[in-house]
Design a protein around this nucleic acid. Sequence first.
DNA 1: TATTTGTATGAAATCGTTTACAATTAAATG
DNA 2: CATTTAATTGTAAACGATTTCATACAAATA
Lengths: 329, 329
Amino acid sequence: MANIHEVAKQAGVSSATVSRVLNNTSSVTEKTRQKVEQAIKELNYEPSMLGRNLRNSESRLLLVLIPNFSNPYYTEIINGIEDFSVERGYNILLCETDSNPTRENTFFNMVKNKLADGIISMDPTINMAKLQELAKKHSIVLCSEYDELERIPYVAIDNEAAAYKVMKHLIRLGHENIALINSDEKFLYARQRRKGYERALKEFDLPLRKEYIYNTNNLDFQGGAQAMRKLLQLDEIPTAAFAVSDTLAIGALKELNVKGMDVPDAFALVGFDNISFSNMTNPTLTTVAQPMYQMGIAAANMLIDQLQGKPVDSVMLEHELIIRESTLN
Amino acid sequence: MANIHEVAKQAGVSSATVSRVLNNTSSVTEKTRQKVEQAIKELNYEPSMLGRNLRNSESRLLLVLIPNFSNPYYTEIINGIEDFSVERGYNILLCETDSNPTRENTFFNMVKNKLADGIISMDPTINMAKLQELAKKHSIVLCSEYDELERIPYVAIDNEAAAYKVMKHLIRLGHENIALINSDEKFLYARQRRKGYERALKEFDLPLRKEYIYNTNNLDFQGGAQAMRKLLQLDEIPTAAFAVSDTLAIGALKELNVKGMDVPDAFALVGFDNISFSNMTNPTLTTVAQPMYQMGIAAANMLIDQLQGKPVDSVMLEHELIIRESTLN
DNA sequence: TATTTGTATGAAATCGTTTACAATTAAATG
DNA sequence: CATTTAATTGTAAACGATTTCATACAAATA
């Protein structure tokens, strides 16, 4: 309620001095510092961020764009972003785009409006052209999904290598008919994972069968279940599948359970992301772990560095194949 | 980049007039309006929220407090809050407290600092005393968990009735030895659900057995698995269990699977919350659905009304028992 | 035409900070 | 003691909007 001038009056100093005490930006006598701190306590003063932000023309707010809250894939990344940002005195605003251009525009406007300082986008459906445009004047970092043109710095993993590793694992277990449950290939990661899938087939002299590749635009459980339903209707049913996300894999697993197919004996299954549920299914799910938390840290670090005018470079982090029951023996 | 004065200059009017055009707060000649709009376009002007917020002394930012991002329970509620708030021109800041008092303080300070206008708290571990204190000067709404003293308005469901309904369902299926996997009873909802559990037992003349009540302070899958492990070690193993959250129930289910107990034939299981995963487990999980989205809407509505000086009343919404495979026949 | 009414606009204060610059005081030097 | 130097503090101008109040002008009335 009280403002800086009242505090100054109470302490018998100028508002400039109070400000100096608040930010210890230049030296202040111990005696005056005490007077000021006393006054602050007496008046129960809390500096207004509104005034400060206007003066400094920054909001210390970072936007984190995700397609929707309910996707557990993002949670650990967000934790990383949050921890790092808070550490540096920034807050994050989680923005659900719902892949809706209007929504997206709202968020872009927030940074134009100075309501937010920068953006970390994890939304693969985002309008890259507009984002590039925004990036000319504002700080932006891509996380997980990125732009091949590479004007905007990003943090990601090597999707192709990860997919290749998954396939190699399945092939070594003796599988020759391996399906790919992929998302829409308008997404870069989808194209990259498919590349890894195909490279492995080629290297091990296995045929590439078009009917074993299923692209879904529904990335939730239902999408996975539906994909598996289709695969199980094929003349020659595959003996294994690689789903590009755990949610898809869990949906597929549900369908396999329904159809009475034993996993892993009759059918092996691999997911991607290592969401916490992947260790709770029956059987537990083999999956690829991305260093989520680290990715979050890195993205936040890059964005804040960028805001402070430091040069930043894109980074590629390591992934790990986690073998569980769904691909045992 | 351009500010309101430059626009005014460009249009040959005063900044007051530009502001009037921006907010159409009082009448402006069609001719001047056109001039102004033209200038806005030419200069690519976007009004600064920082200036506006300072002047209006509001941030149009609402804080939503949750214990942690990874709990899927909250997602639908958040969607409701988000949708309603955005509709009314507010943004929401998702705040993960991690049940950490320091974090909590940071968020409280944000509203004292005018960086946020109000709070919707869904964190059962929150410091109620401090929150009450804050509520004297600021707008606050509780969602899902609330305070019996009832100074702060809340939106919730009738937990006791819901628990009672679950128990009645299990008892009708012929179960007599029913365990309760509860969370820590320092939480109001935990006490209320236990009350419902006990009332049902009493009404159906079943004994209340202390060893059938397991309190966990670990609300994730692990907590549920551990609880079930303990229950399966009892001399007289229960034939059914009611877990106060789906995550607990899914952990318990995992443990039952591991031990080779068939669900529902050897053991019936009920959860709470109807998170999306509850329909993907094998078998699918009987659970209690809260009107999550509606709760979010209601909470946001109450908070914004409060901010605008309108009087608000607490509300109690309806729940629903969703019967699935885990309690079939 | 003189007067009243109403509408459209502008000048300037305001919101609460920070900070460049000026001014004061204290300490150090010759 | 006079003078230079350094350390503290104060004054006042930003930051970018909104809004009260006053004023100018047009239209309506007598």
